[in-house]
């Protein structure tokens, strides 16, 4: 199954099971969303689709207001870069209503994040770490290792306001939800899944902790290093990325590499790294350089994490 089909299926299930409302720009027919996630659905469920003018902070708030009235609501923000416009509603409204007023809210903001496609500075970022430290809300990241549709319906069910990030490069990919001839895929936790990709039963040399679109890069690097350097790696992929407290319990190697697509400095990796280092493991982090994301192909690649960064880190980084 393709990533996008699972996601669309999850949205349809929310509509048919929970009468959920889908809010966003250009989500309706004939367009079906900038990345076509909702393609076909608005014709089938016209009452559940609320197409909007470009007013992100207002329609995010409108979704929150509906959720306060008991509706199940997902808001689509066309590009993850624009979650800055939802920040006040998420941080100062939804999160406070949940945490301070005790409101259960079935409310998710979905958005495509990520680069590697030449979209440039304001259409490529992974800004979700801005929201990860906010109490009263959660940040959930999809990957090709778990059905995004199932993840979405689960996140909606928690009653916690959620930022749900999907990686643009994942939409068209096939999901890897069974073992393939190389990887041994294990789901380590119930609820919000933590997935482990392993190579064998032996203790690996390295654990790569990562999420979202970085999974593909981590997998490629791990394979390459096995063949070229006989280095064994496990990859740990959490989905509730705003909860970094427990991830350390699932790491089996002594050397940990945290890999994220967002800017490394002040990023998610610092949290994972802190816990890893506190438990006596070695840890290095890899993420985007502290730069805007250029549109030009060569420069973009220089800013973003890549397979070579991981290889270099494994071979040189822990000396």
């Amino acid at each position: 199954m393709r990533f996008i089909d699972s996601l669309r299926g999850g949205i349809e299930k929310l509509i048919s099971d929970k009468n959920a409302f889908i809010i966003g720009e250009d989500i309706q027919e004939p367009y079906g969303g900038a990345f076509k996630v909702t393609k076909g659905l608005s014709a089938k469920y016209p009452d559940n689709f609320i197409a909007t003018p470009m007013t992100e902070q207002a329609f995010t708030g409108m979704g929150i207001g509906m959720a306060l009235e008991g509706a199940w609501v997902t808001v689509e923000i066309m590009f993850g870069d624009f979650i800055t416009l939802t920040a006040d509603q998420m941080i100062n409204h939804a999160a406070k209503f949940h945490d301070m007023y005790g409101e259960e809210m079935h409310f998710v903001v979905r958005t495509p994040v990520g680069a590697y496609r030449g979209y440039g500075a304001t259409h490529s970022q992974s800004l979700e770490s801005i929201f990860m430290g906010i109490p009263g809300m959660q940040v959930v990241a999809t990957s090709i290792l778990y059905e995004p549709g199932k993840l979405l319906t689960y996140a909606m069910g928690t009653g916690v306001p959620t930022l749900f990030v999907e990686n643009k490069t994942d939409y068209g990919k096939q999901l890897l939800i069974d073992n393939d001839d190389f990887w041994n895929r294990v789901q380590l936790s119930e609820g919000f899944p933590i997935i482990r990709l392993g190579m064998s039963d032996r203790k690996p040399d390295f654990s790569i902790v990562t999420y979202g679109g970085m999974v593909s890069i981590a997998m490629e690097a791990a394979k390459q290093l096995l063949y070229e350097e006989e280095i064994e790696t496990e990859i740990i992929i959490p989905s509730l990325v705003s909860d970094t407290m427990h991830i350390n319990d699932y790491i089996s190697a002594d050397k940990v590499i945290v890999l994220e697509e967002g800017v490394s400095e002040f990023g998610w990796g610092a949290e994972i790294g802190y816990n890893a280092l506190s438990s006596g493991r070695g840890c290095k982090r890899i993420g985007a350089r502290k730069s805007y994301i250029p549109a030009g192909k060569v420069a973009e690649a220089m800013v973003l994490p890549c397979v070579e960064d991981i290889a270099e880190c494994m071979i040189e980084g822990f000396r």
Partner: peptide, 24 residues
């Protein structure tokens, strides 16, 4: 009744509540 400390922020929340009422 609910309120909050960010000026204007509740106007869009109110709009959503009204939308829910319309839907219901």
């Amino acid at each position: 009744y609910l309120t909050n400390g960010v000026t204007g922020g509740m106007a869009v929340i109110g709009c959503g509540m009204a939308m829910a009422m319309q839907k219901k």
